[in-house]
Structures are given as C-alpha cells and as structure tokens.
Amino acid sequence: MRKIWWKILCIVIIFYVIVMGFMGPVPHLPILNETIRNTYFHVALWLAMTTLLFAAMIFSVKYLRAGRINDDDIASELTKSAIFFGILGCVTGSAWANFTWGDPWPNDPKLNSAAVCLLIYFAYLLLRSSFEDDQRRARISAVYNIFAFAVFIPIIYILPRLTDSLHPGSGGNATFGSFDFDSNIRRVFYPAIIGYILLGMWLAELRIRIKVIKRFREEEFIESGLK
C-alpha cells in the first residue's frame, strides 16, 4: 500500500465531491430543498464507515486464524478511522435534521441506534486500552470486534426498519433509490463513497506505519539493553 496513485485518486475524488457537492445540479424536492446535497456527505460517510468496519472485522478474523500482530494493527486502525467517520456522520446528520425535521436530535430509532453503535465502538477502544500485553490485547479485542460487528449490522440496518423512523427506507417511507436518486446525484454520490473509503484507509495506513515504527524501535531498545 505504499503506492502513491490511490492517495492522488483520493484527493482528486474528495475535491471533486466538495466542488460538485456544493455547485452541481440537484433535483428540487419539497422539504429537502438544497439540503439534499448532504447526501454526498452524510449518507456517503455512513456507508464508508460500514465498509471500513467490515474490513476491520475481516482483519480481526484473519488475526484469529493466523495470529499475526500486523492484522490486528490494521483492524484496530481501520476501526478508529471508522469511528472518526461515525462521529462526522452524526454531526452532518444532525445538521441535516435541524433543517428538515426541525430538531438537531429528534427522537428517532435510527439516531438512537447510531448512538448505541458509537458507544459499542468506544467500548472497543476502552477494552484495547486496558491490556498491557500486545498479543493478549490483540486476541481479545479481535474477539470483541467480530462480536461488535455482528451486533452493529442488525442495530443499524435491520431494527430501525421494523419501526417507524424518519429516515427514508423505514416505517413505510420509501428509500432514496426509488424516487429521487437521479443520475446527477449518482454521479457524485458513488465517487464520494469511494473517496471517503480511500481517505479512511489513508488515515489508518499512516497510523499503522507509526505503530510499526514504534514497535520496531521498542524492540531495538530492548535488544540494546540486553547487550
């Protein structure tokens, strides 16, 4: 992953999304009006977050199968960047809710379950910080990470759809895809998801490299102490 092309791609896409997101043509809908531009940020951020968490879960599984500490580094840093996106998703979502539903935090099942999910992943960070030994921390937080992802999917994507929610796609509301996702939005929305995923990978990659350097230096330090 040391190659440079995907970082350039990431920057290009993010700038494209920002420029097109604010300037591009959008359909005019009642209530939503211009706030539909938030689709490029809010919805795309949540989808990117889910993808990153899924990737993190894959790496946790890989760690449990093979026991390489690098897989755990990748899993934990991907989770951290996913949490960062989750917080951003909450902020953009509440800005959006303020203009369309008239309240920054309406009592909506999907919002509450999003908050619960963030709590689950904050607990993951707390769990990681409570171990001294590297391998032990890696194994136990990998177990928790898989468990958390398996709980995360029903909480975010299944349970809110069973009840009445203000979000599209639940409680009898139509999904976005069915009526107003015209090609103008698609042209920005899909690149936006890819751009955010790349950005998250970039953030994670930098932190993984710092971790690897730290571990290397620690080992060197221990070895020099032994001599």
């Binding site: 619960v116 999910c117 709590l119 607990a123 029903p154």
Partner: peptide, 9 residues
C-alpha cells in the same frame, strides 16, 4: 461498559 450497548437492542 461492554455489555450495556450490546444488550440494548
């Protein structure tokens, strides 16, 4: 901390 969010749904 670990159990409450998971058990909430």
């Amino acid at each position: 901390v670990l159990s409450f969010p998971i058990i909430l749904p």
